[in-house]
Write a protein that binds this DNA or RNA. Sequence first.
DNA 1: TTGTACGCGTTATCAC
DNA 2: GTGATAACGCGTACAA
Lengths: 348, 348
Amino acid sequence: MVTLRDVARAAGVSLATASRALSDAPHVSAANREQVVRTAEALGYRPSHAARALTTGSTGTIGLVLPDLENPFFAAVAKGVQGRARETGREVLVADTDEDGDLERDLVDRLLDRVDGLVLCSPRMPPPALERVVADGRVALVNREAPGAPSVSFDTADGVRQALAHLRALGHDAVAYAGGPAASWSDALRRSAFTAGGAAEVEATEVLDLGAFRPVHAGGVQAADLALAAGASAVLCFNDLVALGVLARLHARGVRVPDDVSVVGFDDVAAATLVTPPLTTVAVPLARAGRQAVDLLDVTGGRAAGQAPERRCLPTHLVVRSSSGPAPAPAASSPAVRLSPDPEVVIP
Amino acid sequence: MVTLRDVARAAGVSLATASRALSDAPHVSAANREQVVRTAEALGYRPSHAARALTTGSTGTIGLVLPDLENPFFAAVAKGVQGRARETGREVLVADTDEDGDLERDLVDRLLDRVDGLVLCSPRMPPPALERVVADGRVALVNREAPGAPSVSFDTADGVRQALAHLRALGHDAVAYAGGPAASWSDALRRSAFTAGGAAEVEATEVLDLGAFRPVHAGGVQAADLALAAGASAVLCFNDLVALGVLARLHARGVRVPDDVSVVGFDDVAAATLVTPPLTTVAVPLARAGRQAVDLLDVTGGRAAGQAPERRCLPTHLVVRSSSGPAPAPAASSPAVRLSPDPEVVIP
DNA sequence: TTGTACGCGTTATCAC
DNA sequence: GTGATAACGCGTACAA
């Protein structure tokens, strides 16, 4: 292994000069700099990251902890973190927690003393544990918030509002909600978007809570039957994976989408465009969130002790594809009370 | 920051003894070990990875370079690498190359001097560059092979054989192949599985080469039209993403699967079960490959200089779902030459 | 501008 | 069994 000492010796300068020359520091004559760079190249010098980290105290590495690499939601965030880290000359240490809150806690601890900062994506750990973790001051949250921690989350409430307004405009006056896990922070947000009164245009919409489902395809299959039994003409889902499950089940049961039932998802993962019919869904800027989390890590370092950390909330927007359409006219298959058009509605 | 020196001082022992005590080394009295461990705990001592790496020369980190984190194929491999690394007490530095061979080369270089070993998944770089990289001796390949490098790949030839035998048994005697990028190592393997004569049971099958497509959904859409025009009753696809595209396009054009056309994919990614109809596909042990690559990294270190690196080939197996079925009886919609059963075939 | 010397936190090699 | 002490490779005050 060729060290800086070797380069300095070969270039006929001191260690300090060689160091300065290679790190673009001032106070080096052009001639010497040239000479050092040249011999470093010639000798195939590779700086030792370990040594550098030891003296500077910075590793040039940021950590990323997420629940599941195979989940397209997290993969998209990871991609964003990657990209931004690369642009700023850093590497990313990724840890997959397998959706396990305890393991997550361990990994965060292990990672924290090998990285400059940590991006925690959709952490599953309970609030007290999370608060202890963010107290370290070097972690940024994605898709969750905690007191004292910088975070970037999504305006899901507005996403829900947009989805409901869309369905309302199509004539759906009762929409079912296939929710995510009860412990989910995101699900709480979506739910509160209903109950908190929402915007004026959705006031008239009745929301049927189908319950809590595992945020995967199977959860959607389960939810679909419930939605059908409840006679809903539209189903809003916790995420796209659930929506895909709903779509599959409806298809299997011979229910046409969107003719009989409309389905709306959340997140706009890649698979949303690949199914039939393409899924109407609330798009969430996943990669952008990952990138911004990396930036928040940086400002965090420079932040004064008393200053409140920055909380960003990224906008969401509805992407209308083909899984949503006008509410069906009341028909024989609808609940009894709707068998025929209500007379009082017909008469002005 | 509390250092080992602090612990030693507080415990009333020397630096050396403290170090030995905490690293489970021999030659330490039980009493002292107990005492050191206790005070380290009390003081909240965290060993410095940078310092340790500097003296030991090992970082406890392995690198993983892959083309695209959002591609479920690579995500599965990454998950395997993660899992195995964790079990063996190491962290994983992940780098996403965005399918760019040049960037890949750079990243490999940058990563190599921060990690103990590197797993290169489906590298896109040309063979000469790859050979130079693996010459380092600390890299293991997944889904590609190179002279002198340990690697774990898949028995795709057998996968192709299984798929063709399956289709043959269903009465398809002409199957179309929707190939991947010409530069793809995997595609070359699949293609050669056809031309190399294959096993006896597939000899009689005629293979229509549809051409090379981008290994994504859109590629499948493109391929589907070609398959239809060629009058194929079955399409074997480079990977599941392409197969999903084929499925979507066939559906859009009113072609029933598997009644009119059978479709078979490759890889068995999660999405394969989520579409309608569920995809028949060749399953490939992705996560297992990732795990084994990590292990190969270890044996590589202990390997004698002259010893050839290990090349593993993991078995594949066909998963029959609902996208493949019996070949349709010749009908009006078939190519003209098949409008009616050929007389000469009917007469024995 | 250049060079000297010290410190970063650990592990490892010696004596004792 | 224990404790000085020397690396490990680099950054950087400080002196020249």
